[in-house]
């Protein structure tokens, strides 16, 4: 049990470093998603199912979705130049 916990915790730190240091933003966010998922597993192990459900829905779900939508927005430059010149 404790080994599993330590592994998961180490994975968390690894994910955090990878998502911060990674070059590609898309992969950073995918790693962030798995970070949230691991976090929710940990909270389940800590006997807080309320938190686990919320984190799974909010962290891995909604926040990551918002990140992806933002990435999609900021890479889609199309039509922006026109806006500014008018």
């Amino acid at each position: 049990m404790i080994v599993l916990e330590v592994l998961l915790l180490a994975f968390l730190v690894f994910c955090a470093l990878a998502t911060v240091l990674g070059k590609k933003m898309v992969s950073s966010i995918i790693i962030f998603m798995s970070y949230s998922a691991v976090m929710s597993i940990l909270w389940f192990l800590l006997e807080s199912p309320d938190l686990a459900i919320t984190e799974a829905a909010v962290g891995a779900g909604v926040t990551s979705l918002l990140f992806f939508l933002t990435l999609r927005k900021i890479n889609a430059v199309k039509g922006m130049e026109k806006d500014e010149e008018s």
């Binding site: 309320d50 459900i53 919320t54 829905a57 779900g61 979705l65």
Partner: peptide, 17 residues
């Protein structure tokens, strides 16, 4: 049971999306 307004609301929000 575990959950409540926040977690359920987030799930519902995901469903709406």
């Amino acid at each position: 049971s575990p959950g409540g307004g926040f977690s359920g609301g987030a799930i519902l929000g995901g469903g709406l999306i």
